[in-house]
């Protein structure tokens, strides 16, 4: 408001002064913007898993009692894990499949650990929409391919837990695991 009398600012402002002033205003507004964005960081990261949840993300399972042809369920990250002791016949069936015909091409070898080829360890979570497939429990339906069958939307998995039929896009996920002894596996 240049018409205000009694101001001590020259009415004609030289270009240098204007640029310096604009710079300060822009810097101040930018600093406010940076501050605002910084505050978003804790607000967003608080929704990520908390330390106690992450601490439960590994589990040790003793699978000594699982006989060939049987399976057991364990829990990893609050989700079921299937630990299955494959029979030689089941292994043979899985290996006989032409991998190139599969929706998610993987061999049984790629899905097990060397020296423990009969132990198929996968998440018990259907890759379609997250239901628990049948086939790990005593007397449950194992589907057309002798592996797992998801009753929600009819996905059928074979003896290597690979998707063979139905809407699921991927094979049952193999979680990270290692054998700490011949009867104990550490998942996660």
């Amino acid at each position: 408001m240049a018409h205000d009398a009694g101001t001590d600012t020259p009415t004609v402002i030289d270009g240098e002064g204007v640029r310096r002033r604009d710079f300060i205003n822009i810097a101040a507004v930018s600093a406010a913007g940076v501050g605002g964005l910084t505050v978003l960081y804790p607000l967003i990261s608080q929704m990520a898993p908390s330390a106690d949840v992450l601490a439960e993300s590994s589990t040790q399972v003793d699978f000594a009692q699982v006989q060939p042809g049987q399976a057991m369920k364990a829990v990893f990250r609050k989700q079921p894990v299937f630990i299955r002791n494959l029979t030689p016949k089941e292994i043979q069936e899985a290996e006989a499949v032409d991998v190139s015909t599969l929706r998610d091409p993987q061999t049984l070898k790629e899905r097990t650990k060397p020296g423990h080829e009969n132990w198929l360890i996968t998440m018990g979570v259907c890759t379609h929409l997250g239901c628990i497939p049948l086939g790990a429990g005593e007397g449950e339906v194992r589907g057309e391919f002798g592996g797992y069958f998801c009753p929600c939307h009819g996905s059928q998995y074979d003896t290597a837990a690979r998707i063979r039929k139905g809407p699921a896009p991927k094979n049952l996920e193999v979680p990270p695991y290692e054998f700490t002894s011949d009867t104990v596996v550490k998942i996660g």
């Binding site: 804790p42 607000l43 608080q46 990520a48 908390s50 330390a51 106690d52 949840v53």
Partner: peptide
């Protein structure tokens, strides 16, 4: 206390 200890930045919130 869970907020203070385990939630990410929970103490700050």
């Amino acid at each position: 206390e869970h907020i203070m200890r385990d939630v990410n930045y929970g103490w700050m919130l």
